[in-house]
Write a protein that binds this DNA or RNA. Sequence first.
DNA 1: CCACTGACGAGTG
DNA 2: GCACTCGCCAGTG
Length: 110
Amino acid sequence: MKKGGTHERIYAIVRKIPKGRVTTYGTVARLAGFAGQARLVGYALSALPTGTAVPWHRVINAQGKLSLEQKGSSSGITQRLRLEREGVKVDAAGRVALATFGWRLAIGKP
DNA sequence: CCACTGACGAGTG
DNA sequence: GCACTCGCCAGTG
């Protein structure tokens, strides 16, 4: 046990995100011990290989939008699909209501 | 070693 | 709401 994998630390937090909920890069960074380094989370997820057991699709930006979709990445479609499949409603502009689905930010109120 | 790029966030105008 | 700037870390050539 050693290995101070910056990325591994982030993956550990992302894996804790419950299904049907989303969180922001900044929150993940904070919980991982990298407060203020939201970018690291993005970089770590970008290095994530395909077929990983990490629910990266549950991580969005502080604006409540899907960064991938905003960028126009083809992977953005996958993220949106997976979220909606878990019960997360995604706006036409690729925006999610953090007030409802935000993990650790607000208790979902159906 | 230097320069550039990249899944962000907060502040400013 | 949008455009621009700065800070921070990792990978590549």
